[in-house]
Design a protein around this nucleic acid. Structure first.
Lengths: 353, 353
DNA sequence: CTGTTAGCGCCTTCAG
DNA sequence: CTGAAGGCGCTAACAG
């Protein structure tokens, strides 16, 4: 009692305003205010108006934390990516954010910096924050802790450009096909000494690119030179170094495929440094469309695909999973493969024999 | 009573486990578990161990939503940007995310798509979610609703590349100086018919770039031709169109400054289309360092600055504001201006007279 | 149709 | 040093 009166007496020194204030102002009960904000149909129009007026005059805004507490849903989706400044992931994230917002979900973004430990850390952070779903591109598909963490959690998760087990939903691009097309094209214009520079085999894109490379040669019934294949990294510095080393070989490649969207700048720097002319001295194909590829001299042939669509697709799947949660049905894992296409430009020339 | 027994009887069909489960397992009270997880010193080592063991066996993870509810702090920072795929904002966001994570804060990212209505919407969304702070680049500094919303809220906010009122904290780059340097340089190699293509004057970068342009000519005591100034947009399509229109003038500019980091591709496409040679036909300066600028033929002179540092700075300020919250002191607004520098490359040539 | 009530999971005095 | 109890702001039964 004393407390109550004290409360009323104390100067309302900008206390945080709550639903209770609205209820008092509109002279209704808490339940009614709740029904109004949640658009429950069973509220008399007159009352509804009074409540809305009270909300306006008090300037109250629902506290989403309290709502989450009650409803066990945060309306947030977590997203863990190896590099949030890589244009590839940027575009995917943008596509995802778009559909999530349309569904009223917020988007929590985190950068693992290609470090599995950080992957784990961030996942746990997001899980403690009780995100309703996860978009995730682990830095290493073969670390068992990741898979077991994901299996233990009941939070729907969609992988981006990654594959952990057949049971996991994922959205990925068809890199295998992209590289196969690139090799086919190069073979068709006479190249056989084709180099592939791409990254780690512990993540899907690296594996698929190499697979496409092998497949293309197999189909053509031609053997490739293993010395022309470099599978250690997808970064620009590696591209810079390996292009130089390849071109310094006694019998250098006549064409190089850069299997990573960050690699073209490194390759071009190497060519500039060593005064290697494209396509006279070597033909080049890059993976990932960029302004640079289009506007370089010469323009660079690239493999491209729809990044934002991947993000939208991934987000849609999470939304679906969240919606179907109760029934425990629909447990078919969903695997979406986005097609790739090759854009022919002047960086590739027929082999003069 | 019946309820309770029912609960105990029901098969524990993977109920969500709570602190209570840990307490029971360790045979201590809730308070003790809480003290252990919050590293309160006053807990006997033995008990502490028992609790930690119980946490491990139950697999419990603290529910951050409940914690937020109790402590009125979500450990989340919201970030609203006009375009989360613009490399400029991407880099800033990355820098910010880095320091926020170091402080244990999560990063909620949202895209306003340069739409003020969406700015407002997203701000409200984040505020309802009770983020502890905000990083924000409004799409229109002159819309009064934004400022009044920010003034009303007690959530610390740092603006990115924007300026709403002297009281708001902000972090911005010195675009005025960047453009002044560019003009000075072009004047020094003989150009006077210098064009500036940049964007909206309702946001700081557009204003500052134009201001730098005017200042440079003022200082030199030379008049510029207003017909060479285009101030309507910073996107690539605008650059593409205006470069063409400028070069079709009876007396075209001898140098063009592209005042926007997305504009260079558009400008280069225009030059390619019209067969305009750089720097023979026109000298070009771009704002914003990119691979394209470095690797184009010829390489493009650019104005650059440290984006990630801006993000880190902004995040640090929010962290400070959150920390100083109780005292209500330290209310000096903080304005950080990041320096710019000009990188000279072969896209600018002395004017042959 | 509206009011009342009982928690959601955790932290934090307050006693012991 | 540890246990008990109240409440953060809201929603969802359940009564009336």
């Amino acid at each position: 009692m004393q407390k109550k009166s004290a409360k009323t007496v104390e100067p309302p020194a900008s206390r945080t305003i709550t639903m209770r204030d609205v209820a008092r102002e509109a002279d209704v009960s808490l339940g009614t205010v709740s029904r109004v904000v949640n658009k429950h149909p069973a509220v008399k129009p007159g009352i509804r108006q009074r409540v809305e007026a009270a909300i306006a005059t008090t300037g109250w805004q629902p506290n989403a934390v309290a709502q989450s507490m009650r409803t066990a849903s945060t309306k947030m989706i977590g997203c863990v990516l190896p590099d949030t400044s890589n244009p590839l992931f940027v575009a995917v994230a943008k596509g995802a954010e778009q559909v999530l917002r349309e569904h009223g979900y917020a988007f929590v973004l985190a950068n693992s910096n290609s470090d599995v430990e950080r992957d784990l850390e961030l996942l746990n952070l997001l899980l403690q924050r009780r995100v309703d779903g996860l978009l995730f591109a682990p830095s290493d598909e073969y670390d068992p802790r990741i898979l077991s963490l994901l299996e233990r959690t009941r939070t729907p998760t969609v992988l981006i450009e990654r594959e952990l087990s057949p049971d996991c939903d994922y959205v990925a691009s068809n890199q295998c096909n992209g590289i196969r097309q690139a090799v086919d094209y190069l073979l068709s214009i006479g190249h056989t000494r084709i180099a592939l520079v791409t990254g780690q085999q512990r993540i899907r894109p690296g594996r698929e690119r190499y697979r496409g490379f092998v497949q293309a040669f197999d189909n053509a019934g031609i053997a490739f030179d293993p010395a022309l294949v470099r599978l250690d990294s997808m970064d620009a510095a590696y591209a810079y170094r390996e292009v130089q080393r390849l071109m310094e070989m006694p019998e250098p490649p006549t064409a190089i495929i850069m299997g990573g969207n960050l690699m073209l700048p490194g390759a071009l720097r190497a060519c500039a440094l060593k005064d290697i002319k494209v396509p006279q001295d070597v033909s080049i194909v890059a993976v990932g469309e960029t302004d640079l590829a289009e506007l370089a001299s010469p323009p660079i042939t690239t493999v491209r695909w729809n990044l934002e669509a991947m993000g939208r697709e991934a987000a849609s799947i999470v939304m679906d999973r969240i919606a179907e949660k109760p029934s425990t049905g629909g447990r078919e894992p969903r695997h979406v493969i986005v097609p790739t296409e090759i854009i022919l430009r002047r960086s590739c020339a027929p082999l003069r024999s």
